[in-house]
Design a protein around this nucleic acid. Structure first.
Lengths: 186, 204
DNA sequence: GCTTTAAAAAGTAAGTT
DNA sequence: AACTTACTTTGTAAAGC
């Protein structure tokens, strides 16, 4: 029996930060190669890094959102690249702007198929959302840690809403023990 | 004070008119769907509860009315798919679905997942197949669902595949296209569910 | 509420070959 | 019938409508 915790994989990390400087996005868009900026569509400028792969949304206020990184370390690496690119454009960037992780998306595998109908009843219809006509996953909201888990018939999971990697581990533990005590993981 | 009085009356009148509009819309859509009067009554009860709980603010009356009708059909055991409900509503399917989930959650309706068997009588009737095909389809659904095959699958596609399989087993073959049309799913979905079901049943 | 970005899960659908 | 592409669901920040 493989511990489901060992199947956890971070798929996406969202973080926010700021350079503490207002920006003229129009000129940044001109000077920054590969930048996508369409203020009519969205107020942020989109800049993609290749290694590590991520997408940064840069705003007029100097605030930045980084998405798509596979780890918190990658978030920092990606943002350092963004900071350096801005410095190359003679824009002042603080030495180490505070980076706050806002959301971590994780996948995991319980290793056996799940009867979602039985789980919906077992976990309590009032606590879950399961509408297979609209989406194949069962939505389970946990209080501690405060995350949302999507459970699939294959036994695969998606956990989102966490701020740190341990949130996903705790969530998997709780889900496994709840399903075990309900006898729905045999 | 007189102004406040008038305002209250105006608000009350507007509220009455909105409720009448919602109920007439539920009636219109229920007729178009051909569901019995009991379903309209259940829908109007749910709608009034949503109104009392102030769940309509920020949402269209039409959207909430349609969602309560969708929920009522399910509660009464004669579900209509979101696609079918959307066809008689002025609200798009996506909006009906999210409004339904919101109302269901807030009112604590505790709706059980739709049992594919609930679609069998209507689909079979539309196809004009025998009672034998109908009970065979129900049997296929029960035995395969017990094996966990239903998890995550849409109830209409699951029912359609079982009816298709049953029509073959009872020598009353209907084509995948015919079944797909009454269930409003694609032939590809029927093919996929059908393959899983006959494999689970050990029919080769 | 919406707009945009990223990523996974699995089902369904549509278009092309 | 296979492949590809795309949409459904979940969280999250950003600025502006």
């Amino acid at each position: 029996m493989t511990d489901p915790k060992e199947t956890i994989n971070i798929e996406n990390v969202v973080a926010s930060t700021g350079i503490g400087q207002e920006l003229d996005l129009q000129s940044v868009a001109m000077d920054l190669e590969g930048a996508d900026y369409d203020p009519e569509q969205f107020p942020g400028l989109v800049y993609r890094t290749q290694n590590p792969k991520s997408a940064a949304l840069i705003f007029r206020s100097g605030k930045i959102v980084c998405t798509g990184a596979k780890s918190t370390a990658d978030v920092h690496e990606s943002l350092e690249i963004v900071f350096d690119k801005l410095r190359e454009l003679n824009i002042q960037v603080n030495d180490d702007p505070e980076i706050v992780v806002q959301n971590i998306v994780t996948s995991a595998d319980l290793g056996r198929n799940l009867n979602l109908n039985a789980i919906a009843i077992g976990l309590g219809l009032e606590n879950i959302e399961y509408e297979p006509e609209q989406f194949p996953g069962l939505v389970y909201r946990l209080d501690e840690p405060e995350v949302v888990a999507l459970l699939f018939g294959s036994g695969k999971l998606v956990i989102t809403g966490g701020k740190k990697p341990e949130d996903a581990e705790q969530a998997v533990d709780k889900i496994v023990s709840r399903l075990e005590e309900l006898g729905l993981l045999e | 004070r007189l102004r406040k009085w008038q305002e209250r009356i105006r608000t009350k009148d507007a509220g009455e008119r909105n409720l009448q509009f919602a109920l007439s819309e539920i009636d219109r859509m229920a007729s178009a769907l051909g569901v019995p009067r009991s379903v309209r009554e259940v829908a109007s009860v749910i709608y009034r509860r949503a109104l009392a709980e102030d769940l309509i603010r920020g949402r269209s009356i039409e959207g909430v009315a349609t969602s309560t009708l969708y929920a009522a059909c399910r509660q009464e055991g004669i579900p209509r798919s979101l696609e079918e409900v959307a066809e008689v509503s002025r609200v798009d399917q996506k909006e009906i679905g999210r409004t339904y989930r919101y109302i269901s959650q807030e009112l604590g309706l505790e709706m059980k997942p739709v049992d594919p068997k609930q679609y069998v009588p209507r689909f079979c009737s539309d196809l004009g197949v025998s009672e034998e095909v109908q009970s065979k389809a129900n049997e296929i659904i029960d035995t395969t669902a017990e094996q966990g095959l239903l998890s995550g699958k849409s109830p209409t596609g699951y029912a359609a595949a079982a009816i298709y399989a049953a029509s073959l087993l009872c020598n009353e073959k209907k084509t995948q296209r015919e079944v797909a049309d009454v269930a409003q799913v694609t032939e590809v979905t029927i093919r996929n569910r059908y393959q899983e079901q006959i494999e689970a049943l050990g029919i080769h």
